Computed example of a mutant assay.
Amino acid sequence: MSFKVLICDDSSLARKLAKRSLPEGFAAEVYQASNGAEAISVIDEHGIEVMLLDLTMPVLDGVGVLEELRRRMLDVFVVVVSGDIQPLMRDRVMQLGALDFIPKPINAGQLQPILRKFGLY
């Protein structure tokens, strides 16, 4: 099983690390966005199924993306990958529908168990 995956982070290095963390054969296609507004456009255009989402970005932040997904009732599996690891922020993104929260920098050892837990890998 493979998915259309969107990596949304304003850091190109963080996007590169996130892409490397995807399990072999997991992603049929990988799209990238540098802010939340771009992410919403990519989701609309390509029907994204799984997203790795940063929280702190220009234009539209990760919380804004989660709120927009919820408002539009879009079914995207979101894993937040962020340096903002405050418990209150973690709770907020989980309430908005994120599957899990990974502190930066991401690696494959962190992502694969989450994908397995939700039956995605």
Rank of each mutant, 00 (worst) to 15 (best):
I43V: 13
V63R: 14
A28N: 08
L69I: 08
F26R: 08
L74C: 05
I48L: 04
A27I: 00
G36E: 13
F26S: 07
A27P: 01
V81D: 04
N35I: 04
V50G: 04
L55K: 09
E49I: 08
M73T: 13
L74R: 12
E45C: 12
S34K: 14
L69E: 04
E68H: 11
R71E: 14
Q32T: 12
E68P: 11
M57L: 09
H46E: 13
V81N: 05
M73L: 12
M51V: 03
G25F: 11
S34G: 13
A37M: 12
L53C: 10
M51S: 06
E68Q: 15
E49C: 06
D44Y: 03
V65D: 01
L66C: 05
M51N: 02
M51K: 10
S41R: 15
E24P: 03
V65A: 02
V42I: 15
L52D: 02
V50D: 05
D61N: 15
V50T: 09
D44S: 12
M73S: 14
P23I: 06
E24L: 06
E68D: 14
Y31A: 06
D54S: 12
L69F: 07
R72W: 11
R72Q: 15
P58R: 01
V81C: 10
V76Y: 03
I43R: 02
S34L: 13
H46T: 10
S82Q: 07
G62R: 09
G64A: 09
D54F: 03
P23K: 12
E29Y: 08
F26I: 07
E67C: 06
E67G: 03
D75G: 04
I43W: 01
I40T: 01
F77T: 00
V79Q: 03
Q32N: 09
I48K: 01
R70F: 07
M57A: 09
A28V: 01
R70M: 11
T56C: 15
R71C: 09
L66K: 02
D54V: 11
M57I: 05
V76K: 05
M51T: 05
D61Q: 08
G62N: 08
D75K: 14
D54H: 08
L60C: 13
G64V: 04
E67Y: 04
S82G: 06
F26E: 02
L55H: 09
V42R: 14
V81W: 00
L53H: 09
H46M: 11
G62H: 06
V63C: 11
A28I: 02
V81A: 06
D54Q: 10
A39I: 00
A27G: 01
L74D: 02
A33H: 07
E45S: 14
D44F: 04
E67Q: 15
V65R: 05
